[in-house]
């Protein structure tokens, strides 16, 4: 569990220097929100919580991540 967390962490921390900024940003955000879901479920122990709380947290993750990527996609010049 910890190893997974660490690898996710380091994955995000090692700076990518690619040409395709859209892919990099999308990747960074997906990694960040995967980590967040991990922190919520395992560290905050929401996976044992009632359905309502689990659902609210997951909806938050999906909506915020989706909205960030959408707004990013709309505002970013191609490439």
């Amino acid at each position: 569990m910890i190893a997974t967390a660490l690898s996710w962490w380091l994955g995000a921390d090692s700076p990518f220097f690619g040409e395709n900024s859209f892919a990099i940003t999308t990747g960074l955000m997906l990694i960040a929100f995967t980590k967040i879901r991990f922190v919520i479920r395992y560290f905050m122990e929401v996976r044992h919580a009632p359905v309502a709380l689990r659902l609210v947290c997951d909806v938050w993750v999906v909506v915020i991540c989706g909205a960030i990527l959408t707004l990013y996609g709309l505002g970013s010049p191609a490439g």
């Binding site: 995000a12 700076p15 900024s21 859209f22 990099i24 940003t25 960074l28 955000m29 990694i31 960040a32 929100f33 980590k35 967040i36 922190v39 919520i40 905050m44 915020i64 960030i68 990013y72």
Partner: peptide
């Protein structure tokens, strides 16, 4: 958790 998003958003996002 909040820092996990702030970090890529401010420092890394291309």
């Amino acid at each position: 958790l909040l820092w996990i998003i702030l970090f890529p958003l401010l420092y890394l996002m291309k």
